[in-house]
Write a protein that binds this DNA or RNA. Sequence first.
DNA 1: ATAATTCCTCTAGTGACTAGAGCTACAAGA
DNA 2: TCTTGTAGCTCTAGTCACTAGAGGAATTAT
Lengths: 137, 137
Amino acid sequence: MLSIGDLSKRTGVKVPTIRYYEQMGLIEAAERSEGNQRRYERNDLERLAFIRHARDLGLDIPAIRELIALSQHPDLPCVNADRIAADHLVAVREKIEKLKKLEHELERIISHCDGHSIEDCYVIRALSDHGLCEGEH
Amino acid sequence: MLSIGDLSKRTGVKVPTIRYYEQMGLIEAAERSEGNQRRYERNDLERLAFIRHARDLGLDIPAIRELIALSQHPDLPCVNADRIAADHLVAVREKIEKLKKLEHELERIISHCDGHSIEDCYVIRALSDHGLCEGEH
DNA sequence: ATAATTCCTCTAGTGACTAGAGCTACAAGA
DNA sequence: TCTTGTAGCTCTAGTCACTAGAGGAATTAT
C-alpha cells in the first residue's frame, strides 16, 4: 500500500495532479486509511504511468479517458485507439507547420534589423506594418 | 470615429477581445459617445493592428506591452525590442523540437500497430509500457 | 512524547480569451 | 415619430491542465 506521496515519487506525477486526475475520473477514487488518507496499490501505479505517458505524448484528458475505456475491453478491435493516436499526430504536425512559419518570419524580421534606434527598428516596423511580412498570417 | 464593431471588422480582432486588450492596458481606454459607447480613431486602428500582428507571431501580452512602450521612445536603441523577438524565436524553436519528437514517437507507435484487437494494440501497449518507447520523454 | 513531515479539503489563480445574461444605445425603414 | 433589429454596455463564469496556498488533521521519525 502506497501513500499518495509514494505514488508521486514512483511515477513522477505531482501529488496535487494525482488528486486532480482522480477528480477528472482518470483514476478511481483510492481506498482510504483510517485517517482518511489515500492508499494505492500496484495497478494504480500502472494506471498512473499510462496516464503520464499519454500526457507526455500530448494527448488531452478526454482522449486519455477514451483510451483507458478502450484498454478495458481487450477483445474489441483497436481501430478507435489507433484513430485517437492518428488524429493527435495530425494535430501535432499542424502545430509544427505553424511554428515553422513563425520561426521563419521571426528570423527574417530579426535579421533585417540593424540594431540602431527604435525609430528604424525592423522588429517594431514589421509589427506596425503588415506589408513588410511574408506569407499569409 | 469608429465603433468597436467597425474596429473589429477592420482589424480582424473580435469585439470582446478588443475590450479585453483595453482591460489589459494594451490599448488606452477609448473615448465614449454620449451613450457610453467606445469611439475609436485611426491611431487606435494602428495600435490594434500592431497587437494583432504581434499575437499572430505568438508573442504574449507582457512582451507586447513592452514592445509598445519601446515603440513610444523612438530615440532609444532597439536592442531590447530585438531581444524580445530573439527570445521568442528561441522559445518557438524549442517548441518545434519537442513537437518533432512527439511526431516521431507517434509515427512509430502507430506504424507498429497491426490494427487487430485492443489486447495486442501497440498504441495501448506503448502507453502502458514505457520500455517500448524510444527517446527520453 | 514531541516534532517534522505528509496528508486532507477547499478555493483561487494561470493565459488569452470566449460565452452568456440582462440591459441600453443607435440606425434604418414604415 | 415610432418601431424594430442590430450592436453596444457591464459583469460573471467557463475554457485547459494543472498549481499555489490556507487551515487543519494524520502519520512518521526521533
